[in-house]
């Protein structure tokens, strides 16, 4: 089977930038609530950790995608990003609980931001897939 070499496309950059922004964002920008008065952590803290883990995995996948030479490999990596992004979206509030009050940081800042990034990542991966499918 002929190996199709692909240069770096716009979507490669988009995926990489999005996933890095997601990963760094969960850690520093839209992080969950701080520690309790007694120093312990609330459940949302662990939700944030889990999301950052998944986001890290997505970022690594996007990095590999960026440097991959074969168009079909890139398509496979796009497919891999889809369930990961979905997982990230399901963690806050569904798989791991968040705080009780809606105005708490984890619910008003982190959860929506995770939703936004997940949607954007899924959209980007799907767009990349469709573009590459056409040129197959």
């Amino acid at each position: 089977m002929e190996k199709k070499t692909s240069g770096i496309s716009v979507m490669d950059v988009v995926l990489l930038v999005l996933s890095l922004a997601f990963f760094l964002g969960v850690l520093f920008v839209f992080d969950p609530c701080g520690p309790k008065e007694d120093g312990g952590w609330m459940t949302c803290h662990w939700a944030g950790r889990a999301v950052s883990g998944v986001a890290g995995a997505v970022a690594v996948t996007a990095l590999i995608h960026f440097f991959a030479g074969d168009g079909r490999v890139k398509m496979g990596l796009d497919l891999a990003i889809l369930p990961m992004a979905l997982l990230a979206a399901l963690i806050p509030g569904r798989l791991i609980g968040l705080c009780m009050m809606a105005d708490m940081r984890c619910r008003s800042v982190m959860a929506p931001a995770v939703t936004v990034f997940s949607v954007l990542l899924i959209a980007a991966a799907v767009i990349d897939l469709l573009i590459r499918r056409k040129s197959l």
């Binding site: 809606a102 105005d103 619910r107 008003s108 959860a111 929506p112 931001a113 939703t115 936004v116 949607v119």
Partner: peptide, 13 residues
Amino acid sequence: ALVAFPFTDLIRT
């Protein structure tokens, strides 16, 4: 929509 709906609580505060 992607921004306005999920971030409703933040906008309110």
